[in-house]
Amino acid sequence: MNLFVSGGAGFIGSNLVNEILKYRKIKKIVIYDNFSSGKKWFLKKSKKIKIIKADLKDEKKLNSAIKKTDLVYHFAANPDIAAAVKNPDIDFVEGTILLRNVLEAMRKNKIKKIIFASGSGVYGDKKKKSLVEDKTITNPISTYGASKLYCENLIASYSNLVGIAGISFRFANVSGDNCTHGVCYDFVRKLFKNKNKINILGNGKQSKSYLHVSDVVSALIKAKNLKFSNHQVYNLSTRDFISVNEILTLALKAFKIKKIEKKYTGGSRGWRGDVPIVRINDNKFRKFGWYNKNSSKETIIKTIKFLITNKKNYRF
């Protein structure tokens, strides 16, 4: 099996590539990445890997690189959700358009399978209501969520028009090795700069599930062996949650900081478009035998440890 992984040098993409290399049936992996957030040090070295440094907006290079692919994993997108506050167009340009180009390249090269990284942001703010794929109304409150939802619908339309079958995963917050954004990254970066004072977005009471990237990868690998039929959507989460204040406590413990001045930006949201409380039901995908090995707390602890250990590589 030959794979094409857009954004393959980024956070989730690099973890998938490093793990899926172990499988004998995988003969070739084309990593297509512009390295805006991806890093070569994230990736293991292997003769199976071919790295193409290019942008998905370059349709000529994309059409050439994607040839003879059996399955596409699409991760390339704007990784910084909060960036849209200052630049609302970013998720359209670095999200929707990129997937459209990938689907067109697939159509032209007669590639029939894609697995897409969506997100729980498609649901919008439902407070503590359990989010269920086939029951909860989607109503995104950010351009990030809107882009992901449009991308899902784009895959569905290509499925009906040209026979491309897709699976979209609506992830909870993902954290772990090789992360480039998120609350853990933010806290660790800030604490390396100043151990006496820290700024916290929102009121610290934001509460969500945090999936370890290794658990996400296990789901992505399991998905490639499922029967692809039209377009299927699956939530993916842990069954617990953790607050920003609790995450800060774990970060301070890792840095062995007992006292620090905390300054909150205020409000229930970390930024405009942030969903402060997220509760995800992922029973639909768990029926295939998948389960998360790491709790939200374990995910946070492991992520903080990884970031501290790799201080030099991250240039904190």
Rank of each mutant, 00 (worst) to 15 (best):
I81H: 14
S37D: 11
V174R: 05
D177M: 13
N313F: 13
S142L: 12
V217D: 01
E246T: 06
K128G: 09
I114D: 02
N230A: 09
N225Y: 15
F169G: 00
P140H: 07
V244E: 10
L252M: 05
V132G: 08
V183Q: 07
N139T: 15
K258G: 07
L250Q: 15
R279T: 10
D215K: 06
K148S: 09
V17L: 01
F241G: 02
Y23Q: 12
I66G: 04
K40I: 09
G182N: 02
G202Q: 01
V132I: 15
K61S: 09
K126I: 03
N196I: 01
R272E: 04
T69W: 01
E152A: 07
V216W: 02
V162G: 06
K263F: 09
D240M: 07
V183I: 14
L99W: 00
Y32I: 15
N153V: 01
I97A: 07
S209G: 15
I97N: 04
T143H: 08
F187K: 02
T69F: 05
A77M: 11
K302I: 03
E152H: 04
I12K: 05
K302R: 15
G166H: 03
N15D: 02
V162I: 04
G38H: 02
F306S: 14
K108W: 02
D91F: 12
R279N: 09
L252K: 03
I221F: 08
G266K: 00
K61M: 14
R315M: 15
A146Y: 09
I141L: 04
I167R: 07
S157C: 08
G176V: 00
K258Y: 10
K28F: 09
L62Q: 05
Y150T: 09
P79V: 10
F35W: 08
K253D: 12
V233H: 04
Q232M: 08
K22L: 14
K39W: 10
S6H: 14
I247P: 00
N63W: 11
N292T: 11
K68G: 07
S159A: 10
K47A: 14
F4G: 00
V278P: 09
L250N: 13
L201W: 06
E94V: 02
L191D: 06
I52F: 00
A9P: 01
L16P: 05
Y314P: 12
L211Q: 02
L16T: 09
R269Q: 08
K256P: 12
C179V: 06
S296P: 13
K253Q: 15
I167Q: 14
H212F: 14
D215Q: 06
N63R: 10
S37W: 08
N230W: 13
K68Y: 10
N63C: 12
M1G: 10
S118D: 04
V244Q: 01
L226R: 03
F42K: 10
G267P: 02
I141D: 15
V162F: 12
V217C: 03
I200D: 03
V85M: 11
M106F: 03
N313A: 07
N230F: 12
H212D: 06
Y185K: 03
L248F: 08
I277K: 03
W41I: 15
